[in-house]
Design a protein around this nucleic acid. Structure first.
Lengths: 142, 142
DNA sequence: CCCTTTTCTGGAACGAGTCAAGAAAATGAT
DNA sequence: ATCATTTTCTTGACTCGTTCCAGAAAAGGG
């Protein structure tokens, strides 16, 4: 869990200005993986009570564009963010409660990156989402 | 491309009442794969000019719940629907224009269905989205 | 053919996200 | 350090896809 100085360095390393909202947002994304925007907004406001939601949206967009965080948006969900980037990991999502866990690639480094027939597309990413039921919901349902 | 009678049979086969909006919606989804709700609404209205948008939303939900059509919703896109169901195919999406094409499984029948560490989840579906650039946009950009 | 159940209409409402203009803050140069 | 420039943040309105609701209409079984 990087501290504020490290987070600032991450920002500077991406040629981004270091502002308190950005540091707070980045910190929140590290603390709360797969959190939605409004959860992150609340988290940020425990530290900076007066940030606007717009500042959080802007920061999330900027950080995403810089590659410091990753945005994921499964079907039927609002946007969520995580700090693990660039390692080609995927997600398993519970259909019942919406909880998300990370899963590493099953098949080598870039599984399925070669589609059978790519229709002439140039493919640069294969996003895999596993849908299922989490342990908690399994117990609850049985 | 099934005709109205066949579509009606599909509905009855799923224990759904046969209504004109439903037949028209189902027909539109067959005609326009990966179309968004409002495109489907327009298509339906060429045949049934007075359908409400709510009827189309309801029909899409009902047909999706019955498994007659499939709903897909890539990040940053509105909901889209297709008539190919149950064959475990995936999609390749153009980052620039949003166009979608079907791709069959690259690796056998259920690629990646076995996650490396499933965190105790019971996985029932692996959804793969290939992101890239379509031929048209490739030409345009070069 | 009528009755019950389900579906459709019309319109209001919701929520995540975006837009826009001016105020504030962060960087780079003096 | 301070100032000027550039970028970012605040405030508040607004958009758009989607959902909610109550009453009207239509489908299918008896």
């Amino acid at each position: 869990m990087p501290d504020a100085d490290e987070l600032s360095e991450f920002l500077r390393g991406s040629d981004l200005r270091v502002t308190r909202p950005r540091v707070a947002v980045l910190s929140a994304v590290y603390e709360l993986p797969h959190a939605s925007t409004d959860v992150l907004l609340e988290a940020v406001r425990t530290e900076l009570p007066d940030v606007s939601h717009q500042a959080v949206y802007d920061s999330l967009h900027t950080l995403t564009a810089a590659g410091l965080i990753r945005r994921i948006q499964p079907s039927g969900s609002v946007a969520r963010y995580e700090s693990r980037t660039g390692d080609n990991h995927h997600h398993v999502i519970c259909r019942h409660c919406g909880s998300i866990a990370d899963v590493d690639c099953a098949v080598g480094e870039t599984p399925c990156l070669t589609a059978m027939d790519d229709h002439g597309f140039t493919i640069d990413e294969a996003e895999v989402i596993y849908w299922g039921t989490c342990p908690t919901c399994s117990n609850h349902l049985s």
